[in-house]
């Protein structure tokens, strides 16, 4: 395990442990956890908090019917009754949580050109509309300065990059909020591959607040 220096905030890790984090963000936390022993230890304790809270609930009696049905079914249960785990990718730098999208490694993905320095491939969308993608920055390449409409979650899977705030290495996790401006530059020695989750721009649907939408698109709110 490499030693990452940028970690998810504590409350984000707690939401992951509670299972209340959107799955797209949970993917990023999960990818980070494969690199980070200290967050793994924190998570084990956060799970313990969940377990204690669950035990403090007033038990809700289960019917005899349910129990008998369960006991009668035991002999016929097979591994097909629970979701299968995905096979391991050929590339060890692909985190386990991404095996569902990446069969053979990064090279075989349908990369699309974003700029001279950057390629991207969309992996999926979350139910909240967030986009989950991989970004590949060529050695020494730069992502043009950009701001965000929603939060952007990034985990470095391979290589490293730096921006105004510092240097980020394999396993590092970062969140850039609305309006944060940054210019990531990949290091010279190799290309950098990141997992990036971007939340869609917020759209208000209320009668009054709909008038805010043009402002949001221009980044005023």
């Amino acid at each position: 395990m490499s030693k990452s220096t940028n970690h998810p905030f504590e409350e984000l890790l707690a939401a992951y442990s509670a299972g209340s984090l959107p799955l797209s963000q949970a993917l990023c936390v999960s990818a980070h956890l494969e690199h980070c022993e200290s967050c793994g230890q924190k998570l084990a304790r956060l799970n313990r908090v969940g377990s204690e809270l669950m035990q403090q609930l007033k038990p809700a009696r289960a019917s005899d019917e349910l129990k008998n049905r369960m006991l009668d079914s035991l002999d016929s249960l097979t591994v097909d009754d629970i979701p299968p785990q995905h096979s391991v990718s050929a590339n060890p730098s692909v985190p386990r949580c991404l095996n569902q999208f990446i069969d053979r490694g990064y090279d075989d993905l349908p990369w699309k050109r974003v700029s001279a320095d950057i390629q991207s491939v969309e992996l999926c969308r979350d139910s909240n509309g967030a986009k989950v993608e991989l970004l590949k920055i060529k050695p020494g390449g730069s992502a043009t300065t950009h701001t965000h409409l929603g939060d952007e979650y990034t985990v470095i899977l391979e290589g490293s990059f730096s921006d105004e705030a510092g240097v980020y290495r394999e396993g590092d996790f970062m969140v850039r909020g609305t309006g944060d401006q940054h210019t990531p530059v990949a290091t010279q020695d190799r290309e950098c591959i990141c997992l990036a989750v971007t939340e869609g721009p917020v759209q208000f649907t209320g009668l009054f607040s709909r008038m805010l939408n043009p402002l949001i698109r221009r980044n005023y709110v």
């Binding site: 442990s17 979701p83 785990q85 139910s127």
Partner: peptide, 25 residues
């Protein structure tokens, strides 16, 4: 219980997602 609940919510969500939580937790 948490993992099963996540999976249940995903399967019954109004908004579909392709993200499979099986290997994430």
């Amino acid at each position: 219980a948490r993992n099963c609940r996540i999976d249940y919510l995903r399967r019954n969500s109004r908004y579909a997602t392709e993200i499979d939580p099986t290997d994430m937790f």
